[in-house]
Structure formats: structure tokens, C-alpha cells
Simulated scan of single mutants.
Amino acid sequence: MKKQEIAGECPWSHLEPSGDGLIVHDFITTKLSTLMSALRRQLTTPYASQFDLSVSEWRVLSLIAHAGTLPFGELVVQSTSDKALVSRTIRLLEQRNLIEIKPESDTAKKRIACSITPEGEALHAKVIPLARQRQAEIICELSKEEREVFYAAIDKLQRAIDK
């Protein structure tokens, strides 16, 4: 065990822009990826599978339910998944009659949009309260101040990436 782990010191406290001394386990991408995998496995997978949905299906269904209708390109961006995964996922959701896929417009027949069906809305209405509860439970592991700082830090990093 490294000295900083024993002392509880943050390896980022005295980090120089050169990144000297930063090990791969302390990369922000590694830390966040590890956290995301654990959150998906411990939070999302149980409630999604309870309703016979994969995590990807739940993510896409919830995005479409929130929007009502989403163009495919926007769905890919919002889902943070690749086009192939989103394409496979919407086809599965369409087969289950949870969403409807149709041309974006009469003039853009090759571009598709996805809309929620009544069956999709009903399923979403069953899952979303449990999803909100599970998400809130883990967020509430942080104090109010920690939540505010964490949320602000995520937003700040997102803005830096989007520049």
C-alpha cells in the first residue's frame, strides 16, 4: 500500500499539469470508469432486469420517455453510447412495442426518430420511481455539501471537455 493511501491523502492534491507521478489507477478516467461500472452493476442492472430490460434498453427507453420523441442522432448523443448499440437497442424496444420508429419527416425519410408507445410509457411509469429511489439512495451517501461540490465539479469538467 502506498503512503498516500495509508494517510488518506488525495493523489490529486499536489498534482502538476505535467502529471508526473500520477499512476493509472488514479487517472480520472480510470476512477470514473470504475465507479460507473460499479454503479451500473449495483444500482441500474437490478431494477432494469427486474422489468426484463437491459441497462442499455432502460437508458434508451427513459430518454425517449422523457422527450416523447427523439431523432436517432440526438438519442445517440444523449445515451452516450455508440450508434451500433443504440441501433440494436431501439430495434429490440420496437419489437417489444415499447417505442415506435418512423422517418423524422416526409422529406428526411432516411433519418429516423423514436417515439414512446403507450406500452413504453406504462413500463417507464413502473420503473422510474424505483430508478429515482436507487439513484437518490447512492447520491445521499454524500452530505449535502459533498453533493453540491461533486455536482459542480462534474459540470465544470464537462464544460472543459466541451470547449
Rank of each mutant, 00 (worst) to 15 (best):
I101F: 00
L157S: 10
T107N: 09
N97P: 12
K102S: 15
F150W: 09
L157M: 07
A160Q: 14
R147D: 05
I138L: 12
Q158N: 14
S56H: 10
V86G: 12
V149W: 05
D106G: 12
Q133P: 08
T29E: 11
Q4R: 01
L92S: 11
Q95G: 06
A65R: 01
R134H: 12
S79F: 07
T89V: 10
K110R: 15
L43S: 13
I23R: 00
R134D: 15
G120A: 06
T34K: 07
S49N: 05
E16R: 01
P118M: 02
G73K: 01
L39M: 12
L39F: 11
Q42Y: 10
R41A: 12
V149T: 07
C114N: 07
R59I: 13
Q78T: 01
R91E: 14
V60S: 04
E94L: 03
K144D: 15
D20L: 09
V60L: 10
I154W: 03
A108R: 04
V149F: 14
D106R: 04
L32S: 08
R134V: 15
K3H: 05
P17D: 00
I116L: 11
Q50Y: 05
D162P: 03
R88F: 09
E121L: 02
D162Y: 11
K3E: 09
K102T: 14
T44G: 13
Y47P: 08
H66S: 06
D82Y: 06
V60P: 10
K110F: 11
S81F: 09
T80Y: 10
E121P: 06
G8V: 03
R91N: 14
E121G: 05
L130R: 06
L32H: 04
T80D: 15
L92Q: 12
I6S: 01
S33T: 04
L157V: 09
D155C: 12
E16I: 08
I23L: 00
D20E: 13
A48N: 05
F51L: 08
H66D: 09
N97L: 04
P103I: 02
L39D: 15
L157A: 13
S37Q: 11
S81G: 09
M1K: 00
I112H: 05
A153M: 04
S87V: 09
I128S: 04
I6R: 03
I154E: 06
H124E: 10
P118E: 07
M1G: 07
H66A: 08
S18T: 05
L61W: 01
Q158S: 15
D106F: 06
Q95E: 14
L35V: 11
T44A: 14
T29I: 03
L75C: 10
I28T: 03
E94T: 07
Q78H: 05
A153I: 03
S33L: 11
I101A: 13
F51E: 11
D162A: 14
A152G: 07
Y151V: 10
P71K: 00
G19Y: 01
L22K: 01
N97H: 03
G19P: 02
L53V: 09
S143L: 12
S56T: 12
S87Q: 12
R88T: 08
L22V: 05
K156Y: 08
L85P: 14
R88P: 10
E16K: 05
Q158E: 13
I101D: 13
L39T: 08
L43G: 15
Q158I: 15
K163A: 15
D20V: 04
E141A: 02
G68M: 04
L35A: 14
Y151D: 07
L22D: 05
E137H: 02
F51Q: 04
S13E: 15
S13Y: 01
